[in-house]
């Protein structure tokens, strides 16, 4: 039971980082990135290819994460510009459909070039024993990385000028503009950051189980559910929801079965929409 719980928290931390990336982009520009999971997988396969070509793991992972961040920036500066010119429901729909198309393209490229490629960074060695509980090395490193990234995000949003500017744009774009903040620049940087976060998840995920080239759609869906349960646009909500759903998912997969756990996730999203559309931490 406790071992499963630990696995759940480890998975939950990955979910959390994935959901935060998605919710940030939505909060800033109203774009629901339906290619979020595909971008994560792209980073994983890119990293795997670099390692095949002899690059050391750490360098390959770093290049993979930065590469996918760069792709985020490029997408924002090109494809997303017509989206930002729209308003309200039209903006949301166009952003959703365009990113869905991008997701198809990424999935198609992966299926075409690397159908059986996977990133596997399984860390060898004896499991650690913490308080009588055996924890795999990969889980420790993955959680450590996810927690570090999480703390860096908190520090970024609390203490840096750019982080505060980002929060102000999420709250009130027009007000932020009047204070001299350029929302367009903030959006671009955060889209890149979101991509990099997806890349980080791909790397940490592969430390406990291989990330295969077909995992994109399901990663996207996990990120969406986390973002909805946490309240779209809420970073702390997404973080909490990620950990919660990771635990629920792992427990139900272990005790009942994988397909039941995905049904539970859908029900969680539906219940949130019905009863707390503002998310678990939302008010009003």
């Amino acid at each position: 039971m406790t071992a499963v719980l630990v696995d759940g928290v480890v998975l939950g931390l990955q979910f959390a980082i994935l959901g935060v990336g998605l919710t940030l982009v939505y909060g800033l520009g109203g774009v629901v990135n339906l290619a979020h999971g595909q971008m994560a997988v792209l980073a994983a396969i890119f990293t795997a290819r670099l390692m095949d070509n002899g690059l050391p793991t750490v360098v390959a992972a770093g290049v993979g994460v930065l590469g996918i961040g760069l792709l985020g920036i490029v997408l924002d500066r090109t494809l997303m510009q017509p989206v930002y010119r729209q308003r309200g429901e039209a903006r949301i729909l166009l952003g959703l459909l365009l990113m869905l198309g991008v997701g198809f393209v990424i999935d198609g490229v992966l299926e075409w070039r690397y159908p059986i490629e996977a990133l596997n960074l399984r860390i060898a060695g004896e499991p650690f024993t913490v308080g009588g509980l055996k924890i795999r090395r990969g889980s420790i490193v993955a959680s450590g990385a996810a927690i570090t990234v999480g703390l860096m995000l908190v520090a970024f949003f609390r203490y840096t000028t750019f982080g505060r500017a980002t929060r102000s744009v999420i709250q009130d774009e027009e007000g932020a503009r009047l204070c001299g903040i350029n929302p367009s620049v903030v959006r671009t940087v955060i889209f890149g950051l979101s991509g990099a976060l997806a890349g980080v998840v791909a790397i940490t995920q592969s430390m406990t189980s291989p990330v295969v080239s077909t995992a994109g759609v399901s990663l996207t869906i996990f990120a969406l559910i986390v973002a909805v349960v946490g309240g779209l646009g809420s970073v702390s909500g997404a973080f909490l929801a990620g950990i919660l759903l990771g635990v629920v998912n792992t427990l139900s997969a272990f005790y009942i079965g994988t397909f039941v756990s995905s049904i539970i996730l859908v029900v969680a999203a539906a219940v949130t929409i019905l009863f707390r559309p503002q998310g678990i931490l939302g008010t009003g």
């Binding site: 429901e89 729909l93 959703l96 869906i221 996730l265 999203a269």
Partner: peptide
């Protein structure tokens, strides 16, 4: 729009 997209996509997964 968002919620329909998300809920139905999640339904596809299950």
């Amino acid at each position: 729009t968002i919620f329909t997209g998300i809920v139905t996509l999640a339904f596809s997964l299950s």
